[in-house]
Structures are given as C-alpha cells and as structure tokens.
Design a protein around this nucleic acid. Structure first.
Lengths: 199, 199, 199, 199
DNA sequence: AATGAATGAGATTTCATTCAT
DNA sequence: CATGAATGAAATCTCATTCAT
C-alpha cells in the first residue's frame, strides 16, 4: 500500500504556507523556495500539487478570501440589512493586525493583477462574490425601508466597495492619520447617510 | 579639471526614464538596465547619481506626483472651492489612458511600500501634499457656503481621497463594471452630497 | 503469497509506452514520469523492472527495431534477391509519417549513443541484424546473377545502409528538397546500378 | 575610459568554449554553466553576449561549419572538378579524431533539430552552403567531361551528401566495421562510378 | 509487488551591484 | 565622470531516483 496522503490537504498545507508568508513578509517574499520551506517540504513537492507558481499564488488568494468569508459568516448570522452590511464592511477594514495583513495581501495582488492578464482574470473572478453580497444586503435593506429611495443601489454598492478598499490602503500607508476609531467613524457615517431622510 | 556635469539634471533624466518605463510597461519592467537604456546612458551611471535602485524608484514616484500636480495647476487656475475640488478629484481618476497608467504606477508602489519601511516612509512623505490641497479646497468651499455645516472637513477630505483611490483600483481591475461615465457620475454624486441642504 | 505478475510482460508494457512517447513526442519528451503515465502505471513500478532510465530507453530502441523487422517479415515474404532488398531499404526510408517517426527515434538515439559508452554498446548490438539481412539478400541476389560480379558485396551492403540512413536524415531535415518520390527514385537508381552490365 | 573588450571576440570566446564542450563531451554536456566555466567566465556573462542558450548553441554550430569551410578552402586551392569534390567529401568524413568530433557535434544537432522548429530552421540555413558547393563542383566536373552525361547532377549531389552523412554516422557507431581505409575506399569507389563509361 | 510522495540536484534565465579602466 | 563588463545570487521549473507504506 502506498503512503496515503490527502492530496487536497497537502495542497492546502502549501497554500497556507504561501498565504502565511505573503501575510507576514509580503507578496514578493513568497518565492517557491520560501513557500516550500515554510510548508516544511522540499522544493520538489510543489511540482506534485501545483502547475506552477501562479497556481500557488492564486490559490493563496482564494484561500485568503475563503477565510474572510468564513469569518464573515459567523459575524453575519442573526444580522440583516444595513446592520449586516455594516458588519461586512467593517470586517473588510484593517482594524486589527490580522485584517491589516489581509489587506496587505490584497493590495499586493492588485499589483500583480495589473502586470499580466492571467492574474487579472483570476482577480476578477474572485471579486464577484463580495460585490454580490454587498448588493444583496443593500437590496434587503432597501426592501426593509432602511435606505432612502433616491439611491441607486448599484452605485451605492460600488461606492461602498471602493471606499472600503481606499480606506484600507490609506490606513496601511498612513496609519497615523487614519486610526482605528476614525476608520470606524468614517465608515459608519457613510452608512448612516443611506438612511431615508425622515428616518 | 573634473568634467562638469549638472548633477541635478542627470538625476532627473534617469528618473524620467524610470517613470516612463513604469508607466509604459509596469513597475516590474523597470530594471536598472532598462532604466539606463531608456535614459540613454550606461548601467554604470546609475551608481554616480543614486544610492541604489530604491533611490531611483522613489524619485520616479515623486516625479510622477510632481507631474500630476503640475497638470492640476493648469486645470485649477480660475477655479475655486467645490468646482476646483471636482476638477482635482476627476483628474485623479483613471479616465483616460494617461491617467490609467498613473494609477497603475501608484498601485504598484503601494505594493512596494507594504514590503519594507523605506518605501513606506517615502510614500507617506508624498501623500501630504495632495491631502493638504484637498483639505484647503474644502475649507474654501465651506467658507463660500458650498458645503453643509454638518460636515467635518477632515473626514470629508479623507473620505474623498479614499474613494478616489478605491475607484481607481476598481476601474483598473473591473473596467467593465466601472466605465468612464459611471466613474464621473459616482464622483459627481459624492460631491453633490456635500452641498448644504437648502442649496 | 506473493502477487504473481508476468515480469516479462510488465517490462514490455512499459517499454512499449516509452517507444510510443518517443515516436510521438520525441526522445526528450520521454521522461520517466511520462513513460509511467503512458503505460498506465505509477512512477514507482519502473524501479521494479528496470535498472535505470537507460535500461528503459535501450529497451525501447530494441522494441522499435523488433517492430520494424516484424513489419519487414511480412513485406519480404515471397520476395527474394534484389526485389526483397529494394523492399527492405524502402521500408527503412521515412516515406510516410509512421516511418518518419521511426527515423526520428533512430536519429535521437544516435545522439545519445555518442554521449556515453553504455548507449553506444547497445546501439552496436542492435545494428548487426539489419546489416546481416542486407548482406544475405545481396548474396542471394549475386547468386541469382542479379548483381554484377565486379561488386564487393560487403562494400555494397555498407554503402546501401549508409545511403539509407543519410537519406533518412536529409529527408527529415530538408523535406522540401527530398520529397517522397525523389527518395524512391534515388534509392531505386542506386539498386539498378547493381545489375550486371549486360542485364 | 571603460574596459574595452571586443564584443565580437568575447562572443567568439564563449562560442568556442561551447563548441569545445560539445566536441569533447557531447551536446548534452553543454549546459550554460559548463560553457561559462569552460570560457573562464561566470554564468552571468552569457547574458551580455547571447539572447539565450539556443543563441549560443546555434552559434557553436555555425562556428563549427565555418571552421570546416575554412579548412576546406586550404585543401581545395588548386583543385577543380572531381578532384576537388573528392577532397571535399573526404574532409567531411570522420577520418581522424578532429573530424570524428565534428561529426559527433553534427549528429547531436540533428537530434536537436528534430525537437523544435527553431533549431530545424537554423540547421536548414546552414546546410545550403555545402550543398551548393557540391553541386557547383559537380557542374564543373561535368563541363570538364569527368562525369558521364547520364547522371542527373542534382541527384548525384544529394546522393553523395547523404552517403557522406550516413557513412559518418556509421563510422562513429560501428568503427570496427568501418575503418578509415574502408571509408576512403567506399567514397572513392562512389566517385569513380561517376566517370563516363569510356573514361 | 506496487504506489506515489518526496527529494534534491541541476538547468536556464534574470538582475542589482561592483569595479577596472 | 562614465563605461559596460563581469559577478554571483536567486528565482522558477524539471526530473531521475529513493523509499516508507
């Protein structure tokens, strides 16, 4: 009988190693050698489980997103509409070290995506889920009368997503100017503005 | 007799070469050799005028910012308050190929800044000017009664800057979703919301 | 109870797989992994049946030769002397895709043989059969009076064999110059020259 | 003043190093590292003078051909027609160690040529010169009445070239069967057969 | 006997940096 | 000052071979 290893699990181990390195040291530090070492294997293993480096990197990106969504799922249970949306968007801001690292990872991938079409394609595929979720919550909030009727929900969705990403970048680059509390306040105010006039 | 060369000018030539390459082919294509060639000099000159590659890259970033400000100066003459602010922010969006390249450069540098403290420090130093300008224009707009008194101008400034950067990233990553007209509209709506209620 | 497997047959399966790959994709594409996959086994089996990769490759060479001889056997039945010889030599020319692949395989092995003594030794062992066959047919042809008495049959044999291999190489390298018809004609003329003057 | 090196000469040094390795140890031993070491430089130099490894290898092939032609030039002065042709073809046979290595190099490149279109193209370009020379000498020999009128000179040219290459391969693979004298004799006989009947 | 996971060496290529001239 | 040759490390990828199960 051969040594049985769970193929999916081994892939996951390596991907997690890659994710850890990117979070800890940045996307440029994630060389194949470093990834193999972090995973506790030799360089050669990567061959067995991945087509090439991009395969690893994109898997790491997907893994990061999956983790975020997983964490969100917990936070969103029991919440609906604007309340859920606030939670979602706050969770996407780098308000603690863990999420700061996630944002760093994300921003690193932006740079890669603008380099070549393969990464760009993958990045786009990844983005859909979050956008859909935000749009859905906005729809629910509107149905519940939490949002003024003057607002175009698609516009609101894209504005909020852009704001969150922009604030994330600025928080990482200029942490002194954008403290945690300020970030919360800015986002909160943005959401409060959605409420109907007479609310 | 030492050969007299204009040190400042030579540096500038190389920096411009670096900037051109980054805009044209991306930050990863900006190797020292490519930069030297683009500048029309040999590899060796770089040693004389720059401490290392980071020195060149950061100078290129500064140069890009200087050019943007230069261009803005022209666009803002004769404008004041919200009108000027709108012009400024629109100019920061990737609404044409030139500005798309500038955004790409910027985003590429974000990734680098999050890699090490040297790049980060430089990036921070660069950000001040734009922020100051936005804040000033907001102040003038408020003084002219173009902005509702309920708004905290510092918050507005950071919100607008974050929104512009976020929209820039999303426009580059998801151009289908964020067309040029939509980008204009989203930003315009954001500015319109600043006006005092009875305006 | 040990599992009973037909050792000889398993070897043959792997060797055939190797031969197919070399024919189809060239000698460089015949990696151990590719061979194992083509054979429908895991990498590990190779260890049990072959000393090392060379062992596989040489066996593949022998297999190719055996197949060629097999095919020849069919074509030569009922033929004798010069007629049989013509058939044999034509069969060794890359006149269709199948035989072009065989020639490619052969030429690839020439390169390998000139690399180390092990491959060379094996190659030599392989060559004897064909040479013997050609020489025998020449002898029979001479006995039948189909060949002029002035010819030294050993010389003729080596000349024909060299010509066939040389034409094969040139056909593969310069197919435009050496079309199928031309190849046939060149070889045919060579054989016709063997006939006795008064024939 | 910069260190002045003759670019062409440095390229030549590396190419010669590559050629020496291929002659001495075979085409597979000619790794970029081995070539750099043999040339007495570090790996990095190759970048300055060659686009990639193929560039080096093809240059080595051309260099080998140039050397052969150079050597031929000396041998052919004062000779014409069949006499010159005999000299040319003999020079292409591996009759001494130097020419045996040249043949080995050539055969190694055949294998590479059949692997990919780039090498094949280059190989073809290289082959033209020799073929043209042989054809020209045959034409001169025919004009001088040294060749029987029944022969098609293009056919003869290709037959001779194929024979020489075939004999070269067989001499390297089966040196015991094809000694130096025998090789000379076989080729000589082939040329003698060209003479007009009444000659 | 058979698996296939794992190794680790080695191949090509790229690049920032150094330095003799 | 300026050149550009040269370095050598590092990156990605490939592959024959080994070995625990």
């Amino acid at each position: 009988m051969p040594k049985i290893v769970n193929h999916r699990q081994r892939r996951a181990e390596v991907v997690e190693a890659a994710r850890r390195i990117i979070l800890r040291e940045g996307i440029e530090a994630a060389t194949t050698r470093a990834i193999a070492r972090e995973a506790g294997y030799s360089n050669g293993v990567l061959t067995h489980y991945f087509a090439d480096k991009d395969d690893i990197m994109l898997s790491a990106l997907r893994s990061s997103h999956r983790r975020i969504v997983e964490r969100l799922r917990g936070k969103l249970t029991g919440r609906t509409g604007l309340d859920a949306l606030r939670e979602l968007l706050l969770d996407n801001l780098p308000l603690d070290e863990e999420r700061a690292q996630e944002s760093r990872l994300e921003i690193g991938f932006w740079g890669r995506a603008l380099t070549g079409p393969a990464m760009l394609q993958a990045q786009r595929a990844e983005a859909g889920e979050l956008r859909y979720l935000v749009r859905s919550l906005l729809g629910a909030a509107a149905d519940a009368g939490e949002i003024g009727t003057a607002e175009d929900l698609d516009d609101v969705a894209d504005r909020l997503l852009a704001l969150v990403d922009g604030l994330s970048v600025h928080r990482l680059l200029y942490p002194d100017r954008l403290g945690v509390d300020r970030l919360r306040r800015l986002l909160g105010a943005e959401l409060d503005r959605l409420r109907p006039p007479g609310g």
